[in-house]
Every structure is written in C-alpha cells, then in structure tokens.
Design a protein around this nucleic acid. Structure first.
Lengths: 158, 158
DNA sequence: CGCAATTCAATTGCGCACAATCTAGTTACG
DNA sequence: CGTAACTAGATTGTGCGCAATTGAATTGCG
C-alpha cells in the first residue's frame, strides 16, 4: 500500500506536478476558461455572455443567418443555440423569424439595439488585445497552430 | 439598410469569414471542445467524463487530496467539484472522508476500483497522443505557449 | 401523386463552470 | 474565555455544451 512514495517524488521533481501539466489538452482547457473569465467583466456591461458575443460577431459580420449557419460557424448545435438565442431575444438584441421560403428554418436578425452594440463593443477587442500580452503577429501565429491542432483532432471524428 | 454589402465581401475575402476566426480566443475555445469530443469516446468505457478524468490523474499521482487541493490544481471551485466528486463516489472510484485533524476539509481517496482504472486508461493516453498528429516535442512546445498565454491572461485578473 | 427519407429547429436530460450564499469548523485577538 | 474573522466545503441558481428525441417541413423516389 506504499505504492506511490517514489512515484510522487519523481512526479514532483522539477518544482511541480507532471502528469497533469504535461498534457496539451489541460493547457488548452485552462486557457479557454481563462479567456472566458477575461471576457466576462468586459461583456457584462453589454449584457452578453461569451458565447452570446460570438453570435453577435457572426451577425455583425452578416445579418439574418439561420440557426444552422450560426451553429456550423460556431461549432454548436441547436440544443445549445435554441435556448441561447431565446435569451438573446429576451435581451432585445435579436429577433427570430421563421423563413418564408423554407418554414423549417429560423432566421436570426439583429434588432436596432443589437446592431448598435457593435460600436459599444470596441473597447472589448482593445482590452482583450492588451490582455494577450503579445503582438498581433504572435497571437496570429499561435492561433494558426491551435486551429491546425483542432483540425487534426476533428479529422478523426465524424 | 444595405449596410453590409461591401463589408461582407471584405470580410469574406481570402476564402472565409474573418472577424470570428481572427480571434485567438475562438481558436482555443474550439480546440478545447474538439479535445473533449476526442476524449469522450475513449473515457466512456471507463465511466468517466473529461473533468472526472482530470481528477483521477491528480489522484493517481497523489492519493488522499483535499477538495481544495484538487480545485487549485484543476482551477475549479467547490461549486463544480462537490457534485462532480459526489458522482465519482456514486461510480465507486473515490471515497470522501472528513479529515480528523481539521473537520472542515474532506479528503478524496481512491477506491481499489479507482486505483485499478489507471492501468485500464493506458490506451487513452496512447489514443490522444496519436490524435494530436504531431511529435511530443511539438505538442510540448505548443503546450508551453498556451500555458504562457493563460498566465498572461490570469495575471490581470485577481 | 404518395410515401419514405431527410432536414431544421426545439425540447429534454445530464454534466460541467461559476457567482453567491450558507453552514460548520478553526484561528486570532482582545 | 469569548467573540470576530477566516477557511473548507456544500448548496442554489444561471448558462453553456451535447446526446437523444420529437415534430414539422421539404425532398426524393417509385
């Protein structure tokens, strides 16, 4: 039952635990949470959560998208988006209207208030840029590496 | 009302949308989800979710840790860990026993079944290693970059 | 045309993640 | 000693994230 005396010593050599921190996944998992914690106080005055802000970025870029289009862009399914969009409708930032050509799809449209929010969100991008603590080129390089990793992971799913 | 004709064209130049994909945060957010989706089918036969697997990694490295110690290591608070550990107790992988020296703390201990799981999880690490699609050195380098980014983000929180 | 297969969105159920609050136990200070 | 400050963990409430199911609309095929 004294199975871990030497194992723990080895694991801790170098000033910290190894097993967990050795994992790239744990690093990304932690960085993702750190990002949302950084965004939270910036988005709170706008009445948005981070996933809701992602939806707004999509809509500011191109208004009137279907739920499916948003889901494909963001990597989210209707189980996530339906209630999220309903909350955004409650907040008054989007409208949800069933498409005339195809009654199955629901188009998400910005309200005037939602469109105005784009200007008010300028400081968010600035603050995040500053929080990154690196140049835009460095951030872009890291982003490309992470995106390539994600592509490799998704390649062997469905 | 035709406010986005040229904007959309510009945004799409280069073969894809820009606003969203330009963000490092969105890349990490997506990669984190891709990781958990990769882990899911590997951990399902073991009866673990990814956060539960992280707890097991902690405990395999050092048994009998307090909830607080696990939380600091994993970056999770008691609001997340309490119900998670209760589910792991239901699964039969850990026991929760109040400390004798300090009745406030609860020590989490592996059951025999939980300890045995370590051997059965060998294929998980192998499969993830293969799914990464890069060498261990490359993965370690990316991990260090992501950890450094996380450290910079956390630096200007509390 | 008529029925099966497909597609889109919504719903249900479960498991994180976290803020806020609560309880119990411990420590510190007068 | 006794009370105030602090700490550990649990609980409550909100919001994702996703699998599975449902229901309505559309498409495709005989």
């Amino acid at each position: 039952m004294e199975k871990k005396a030497e194992k723990t010593m080895q694991a801790r050599s170098g000033g910290g635990q190894m097993v967990l921190e050795a994992n790239l996944c744990f690093a990304i998992y932690g960085a993702a949470h750190a990002f949302t914690r950084t965004y939270k106080p910036l988005l709170e005055p706008l009445g948005l959560t981070y996933p809701q802000y992602l939806v707004m970025l999509c809509l500011w870029e191109e208004d009137m998208q279907t739920v499916k289009a948003l889901g494909e862009r963001l990597g989210l399914d209707s189980g996530t988006l339906s209630p999220l969009l309903k909350r955004m409708e409650q907040s008054g930032y989007v409208r949800r209207e069933r498409s005339r050509e195809d009654e199955r799809q629901v188009k998400i449209a910005l309200t005037d208030e939602g469109a105005c929010l784009e200007a008010r969100s300028a400081n968010v991008r600035a603050a995040i840029g500053a929080a990154l603590g690196c140049t835009m080129d460095e951030a872009a390089a890291l982003r490309d590496e992470v995106m390539a990793l994600k592509a490799r992971l998704m390649q062997l799913e469905g």
